[in-house]
Amino acid sequence: MITLTHFLVVSAFIFCIGLYAVLAKKNAIMILVGIELMINAAILNFVAFGKYDKINYGGQIFALFAIVLAAAAVAVGLAIILNVYRYYKTVNPDQIRELKD
């Protein structure tokens, strides 16, 4: 029997993997993948909790909107990273540091 707890544990794992991908930054594309994992963890949570919200289906609707918004943000992010690559010939955020104190 799969209960709510299982969903929550899985989503917490996915969130942590995403957070690790973001913090161990070596490649901007990988950071975007990490962000996507974090968003998907949240979406999983929403759908799992949505099971108990039979009147409004708030969680399900939220999940749909979150998927669309994540796709939009990633599209813009990729375009911007492509621009950066044209100037720096790298997408490693550690090496892109002309702006600093």
Binding site: M38, N83, V84, L99
Partner: peptide, 14 residues
């Protein structure tokens, strides 16, 4: 400008 935009988009999405 490109670098500012990249930092902004990554930080903001996270």
């Amino acid at each position: 400008e490109a670098e500012a935009a990249m930092k902004y988009v990554l930080f903001g999405s996270i």
